[in-house]
Design a binder for these strands. Structure first.
Lengths: 137, 137
DNA sequence: GGTTGACCTCAAGTTCACTTGAACTTGTAG
DNA sequence: CTACAAGTTCAAGTGAACTTGAGGTCAACC
């Protein structure tokens, strides 16, 4: 008996049971069956859930994630679309890295007014230019 | 006359005027004055707005961003907190990089079932373990 | 100096991602 | 066999981040 109870899944994944039911309803995950009324989950669902959390952190909506990975967690859409998502993500990452460096500099720089600091300005300039591309939030 | 009309700011930043008013109300940006009823913005607001968009993409809430940078766009909170934000962001970035690699691999890998592919599994394992740290969404 | 259209305010509505509550069912322990 | 803790459904509520609509104002052009 390897199947997991919803409470087990919640505990192991850190995601509340209510959210797990919501995900199932939205087609992001699937239970393998029921014991009475109670859902049973395959342990694989845990891996799948970390993929979902990850995708959310990347700025993808649950709907997008459902399109990208089915309720089975396997990449689903065509390779071109996956590659495009990867590229969008890559751009996001570069911008975030610049923001990180900017914050780190702001934390270290003795300059009072960071917007006067050329290093900070340069980093922020590098970080700019997001918004309005459908794949990357 | 260098001040920008809200429509100009909207056009240049790609952010709708309604959102700009909302940001002002929330203390994320400031207008330099009014011409009659109409807000006038300093061009600097554009830089500030890209910082906001960036912060959002990084998973920070508007409230957090307001705390991090005032309505003037200058880093505001103490250096320790900024450094902590930078560290949280850095962790996020690493996870996203793993997701990007996973997607890229999924797009390229000839394997039909990606969850059977060791490369994909390894990448997803590396990407896991987000959720429940207050600074990173 | 009147019209006009872009801006204003304020309240209410929308979407997303969940959470909460009420009422109900059921496997397991005693 | 009864009790009950832990699950279930379904509807409604929540908070964040905006958007939309109604009704009002006013700077600028003709």
């Amino acid at each position: 008996m390897k199947e997991l109870d919803i409470a087990e899944v919640a505990r192991l994944s850190g995601i509340p049971a209510s959210a797990l039911r919501y995900y199932e309803e939205k087609g992001l995950i699937a239970s393998v069956g029921r014991r009475g009324l109670r859902r049973l989950f395959d342990p694989d669902v845990l891996e799948h859930l970390s993929l979902i959390s990850l995708g959310q952190a990347a700025g993808f909506s649950l709907e997008e994630l459902a399109a990208m990975f089915g309720s089975d967690g396997r990449p689903r859409i065509d390779r071109g679309a996956l590659a495009a998502k990867a590229d969008a993500l890559d751009r996001t990452i570069r911008h975030l890295a610049a923001l990180r460096d900017g914050l780190r500099h702001a934390a270290a720089c003795p300059e009072a007014d960071h917007f006067a600091c050329p290093t900070f300005r340069r980093l922020m300039k590098a970080a700019a230019g997001r918004r309005k591309q459908k794949g990357g939030r």
